[in-house]
Design a protein around this nucleic acid. Structure first.
Lengths: 194, 194
DNA sequence: CCATATTATGTACATACCGTATGTATTTTA
DNA sequence: TAAAATACATACGGTATGTACATAATATGG
């Protein structure tokens, strides 16, 4: 009963890891980190806890893998949306904001990235993670806008963090309020014009 | 051995509740919600778990009490600072921001209010809690500024949430970066001038 | 003032989860 | 093909949480 399903180690590895991360992402999304047990996860993934603890140091490491993947998906989604044309740095900023809010439509994604991640991984880790993803492009966008004279000169890193915080909050707003948030953000950006 | 320490029920009640909340606040501040066990808490408080579960439905309810008290302390601290004079609504806003950042100096307070609370209680509960405390004054301040013609007209509720998000992020910044955050916030507010 | 009800607190227990240790199977390597 | 390495499964210990039950302390009413 082993002939037909002979897999290489890297195949086995990748398959079970993917199964684990996928199942974990679904459960974390639905019930949060604390509300999800490792027995649940491995059952959903069709493996045992032994496999989990072979591939991941602990429940936290698995969660981190989930968060990492989610960040990747978000930044890909944003990059895909923004690449078109560039009718000015401020328009680009607004477009980036919209792309982010779009990517954050998924409530499980909000739970994982915005609610649980800071508490579970710590803010330092979260900062490190999204410094590696979306933050960079945001900072660059702001810096370019300032160098081009479109935006007032302000400490970019801090400003980017502040925008990030606003975007996160807007993403968590009730659907019927999103328009208001967007309007306010727009006004704030417009107000920064040089 | 009971004569000299005879206490009324309400006294007993208040004393043990205070002991529990106080001990819990210290431990949650130091080690976070998940990293703190109820045995630890009751030991520090000098009671037993039976007392805890008599006065609080569960560990979560105790945490909620801690958060509630912390919010109260913060809003008191802010109100105490702002009452002096009013050299204009924008100055008042900046002053309020500074007062908040000052109140948030305590790292345990940051852990409880900004890191753990959203994940443990859920964002809806957190919103409800600080709608009852600082948010109200912030909204009023903004509305007054708009009505006075000092600020551009923007959806106030949303704007207040965005400012709240920025203040929270600024409070979590590394101490050496706070000045940059403050500068950026100032620029954002200035930009909103009508 | 006493008996009883009510409230506060303490103890014991059942359940669940996490991480580890150990054992087994599968794949790679020599 | 034998041995080493890797992947996976099972069993266990320790600890935490919430509850059920028992005891002690206060309040209440006759």
């Amino acid at each position: 009963m082993q002939g037909n399903l002979r897999r290489s180690q890297s195949e086995r590895r990748e398959q079970t890891q993917r199964a684990l991360v996928s199942a974990a992402r679904a459960l974390f999304a639905e019930k949060g980190f604390a509300g999800t047990s490792t027995p649940e996860i491995v059952t959903a993934a069709g493996v045992t806890r032994g496999a989990l603890y072979h591939h991941f140091a602990d429940k936290l490491a698995l969660f981190e893998a989930v968060v990492e993947e989610e960040h990747l998906l978000v930044s890909m989604s944003i990059n895909a949306a923004e690449s078109d044309e560039e009718p000015g740095p401020i328009k680009a900023l607004l477009a980036g904001c919209d792309a982010f809010l779009n990517a954050m439509q998924d409530s499980g994604r909000r739970q994982i990235m915005l609610i649980d991640a800071p508490a579970v991984l710590g803010r330092a880790k979260v900062d490190e993670i999204d410094a590696r993803h979306g933050m960079e492009t945001l900072v660059c966008g702001l810096r370019d806008a300032m160098d081009a004279g479109a935006l007032r000169k302000v400490p970019v890193e801090a400003l980017a963090q502040l925008f990030g915080a606003m975007f996160d909050r807007a993403a968590l707003a009730a659907p019927e309020d999103v328009a208001d948030y967007r309007k306010s953000i727009k006004a704030l950006i417009r107000g920064l014009k040089a």
